[in-house]
């Protein structure tokens, strides 16, 4: 998954979305919000809502279609698909959220530090950033799996590190612009420290941009994490996870029983599409309001 590179200046000019944004959502927007709320509910309450044990399989039910309380039927090992989807939401959603959060924190810190101090700090940081840029997220995650052994943690950490330079690059532009404002110079002359100025003035002024970056990254993280779990290098089977389910269901799919893989794919696609639609819409709405 590549990350779109966004013009920092143009992005910086966007205002935070306001109430009018909500009215511009349209029906697709409301559906998207619905999908996200549902996904969050699944992530939080999944194990409680799950009607059956997600890991308890009965091979005599392998690849049996929906009946009775088993609304989505069984997977290749006779486990209840709906229960696995409900339980698997947690790693898929919270895993991606954690990756986005860590990437945003690292990226923002890098951006603020380089924008504030400039000079040697900036030059050193940009060398590091250049090297990290040379590693696509998926590759870094595979390397992490080789080094630390395959797990959600190593994959997530690798992705967060791979994403952070993109955040840093976008935010650095905005932070530099804010840094150049005369009021910052005025406050500096009055003896306010770097910490205080960064926290109270720089950070709030680029906050909408940070939120936007986080939203974009959440979508990427969800897709990439699922892809890595699909490769067998992330969440480990038999633990329920949407990415793992796509991979587990493949054997059944090739035998003509696609329900497991396809239901997991649809969950991932629905959430990613909803997040990216809302991200886009917030973006264009705030532009329209600004004009």
């Amino acid at each position: 998954m590549s990350i779109e590179i966004v013009d920092p200046v143009a992005e910086a000019e966007e205002a935070s979305p306001d109430r009018r944004t909500l009215r511009r959502l349209g029906w697709v927007g409301w559906i998207s919000i619905g999908v996200i709320v549902l996904a969050l509910l699944m992530a939080v309450l999944g194990p409680i809502l799950a009607p059956f044990d997600p890991n308890q399989g009965d091979l005599s039910f392998a690849n049996v279609g929906p009946f009775g309380q088993h609304l989505l039927g069984f997977d290749g090992q006779g486990r209840d698909v709906l229960s696995r989807l409900l339980v698997g939401a947690r790693t898929a959603i919270f895993g991606a959220a954690a990756v986005a959060l860590v990437a945003v924190v690292i990226g923002t810190t890098l951006a603020l530090v380089t924008a504030w101090f400039g000079g040697k700090v900036d030059a050193t940081a940009s060398v590091v950033i250049d090297v990290v840029f040379a590693f696509p997220g998926i590759l870094l995650a595979i390397l992490a799996a080789a080094v630390f052994g395959p797990s959600l943690f190593s994959a997530g950490l690798a992705l967060a590190i791979a994403y952070s330079p993109y955040v840093a690059r976008v935010l650095r532009g905005a932070a530099l612009k804010e840094r150049a404002m005369t009021y910052i110079a005025a406050l500096e002359v009055q003896g306010f420290g770097a910490w205080r100025l960064c926290a109270r003035h720089l950070l709030p002024n680029i906050s909408s941009l940070i939120v936007a970056q986080g939203t974009i990254l959440f979508g990427f993280a969800m897709v990439d994490l699922a892809a890595i779990s699909f490769l067998g290098l992330g969440v480990q089977t038999p633990q329920a996870d949407w990415g793992v389910m796509v991979s587990e269901g493949k054997t059944s799919l090739l035998q003509g029983y696609p329900l497991v893989s396809i239901s997991a794919v649809l969950c991932i696609v629905a959430v990613v599409a909803a997040v990216s639609f809302l991200g886009d819409r917030l973006d264009t709405s705030s532009k329209a309001v600004n004009r």
């Binding site: 699922a226 990415g243 796509v246 493949k250 090739l254 893989s261 396809i262 794919v265 696609v269 990216s276």
Partner: peptide, 19 residues
């Protein structure tokens, strides 16, 4: 098609055009 990650597209294509 933008919402279709590579592994998801792979699985769907395998099912529709292969199986």
């Amino acid at each position: 098609s933008a919402a279709l990650p590579a592994f998801a597209a792979a699985v769907l294509l395998q099912f529709v055009f292969g199986v």
